[in-house]
Design a protein around this nucleic acid. Structure first.
Length: 265
DNA sequence: ATGCCTAATGCAATTAGA
């Protein structure tokens, strides 16, 4: 089973790229971020033509998240991140697909720092940590996937010294992310690729992709039940080289099939 | 410190992204 995440940066403007990649990669589940489309402008029909059902939380102009599943209807469990009824930004959606619970998230960028946007980011992470505490402890496999807008370590950015003042690399954000992982989440890229240089985002500016001046900010985290089934992970970085592409590349994992009930000793 | 580029909105220029 293949589960992926992709910050599309405009799901309608990106539709040719998205459909091309879906046909090529054929993930069973895809978390999308930055739809940049209101609820009624989600390209449901074009995705259904490729066999994907979807749940989504749109928003005009910015944000927006979706979970797609090939040949299965995602069973939605949340369409916003609990903990703040005043939060109107569409950044979290959660659904069960084939026995796996999937949280798709678009964590706030937080720039400029300091300021209200950075405060919102930190508050959002705390709410995510609260939700994740419940999810990590479930017996069922759980995946948290999306654009976290957090560079976890020096190894995840081409020039760490240039990002010291940025909200993506802020000590407070990284410390909070480390606390999230300490709940018992496995970072799928690090689990498979060790300390290798792996990026998921390259700025549109200054030929960043050609120079491989990238960041690793899109992550897939697995609770223990999911981590026990992890067989592979990767970034489809070539997609970043396509025409009219997103500044992010798709990230994916593969999971072995669930053990049959009773097969465990 | 800012622009470099890109998308959405909506038709010019602004807002936001990271």
């Amino acid at each position: 089973m293949k589960i992926a995440t992709y910050n599309a940066n405009g799901v309608n403007g990106r539709l040719p790229v998205l459909l091309r990649w879906l046909e090529e990669a054929r993930p069973d589940v895809l978390c999308l971020q930055e739809l940049k489309a209101p609820q009624d402008k989600f390209p449901k029909t074009a995705l259904a033509d490729l066999g994907y059902y979807a749940v989504w939380q749109g928003q005009a102009r910015w944000n927006g998240v979706a979970i797609l599943a090939r040949g299965h209807r995602p069973e939605e469990t949340q369409r916003s991140l609990p903990g703040d009824p005043e939060d109107v930004q569409s950044r979290y959606i959660e659904a069960a697909v084939r026995g796996i619970l999937i949280g798709g998230l678009y964590l706030p960028n937080g720039n400029p720092k300091p300021g209200p946007k950075f405060d919102y980011k930190l508050g959002w992470i705390e709410r995510l940590i609260d939700r994740a505490a419940t999810l990590v402890a479930l017996d069922a496999p759980v995946i948290l996937a999306g654009d976290f807008n957090i560079i976890p370590t020096d190894a995840d950015v081409y020039k760490p010294e240039r990002w010291l003042k940025d909200a993506l690399f802020a000590p407070e954000a990284r410390a909070a992310y480390a606390r999230l992982l300490d709940q018992g989440w496995t970072d799928a890229i690090r689990a498979i690729h060790g300390g290798d240089t792996v990026y998921t985002f390259w700025d549109y500016f200054r030929d960043a992709y050609a120079r491989n001046a990238g960041l690793r900010i899109d992550h897939i985290l697995l609770n223990p039940a999911a981590a026990a089934r992890l067989t592979g992970s990767g970034v489809d970085r070539h997609v970043r080289g396509w025409e009219k592409t997103s500044d992010h590349a798709p990230v994916w994992i593969t999971l072995s099939d669930a053990k049959r009930r009773g097969a465990e000793r």
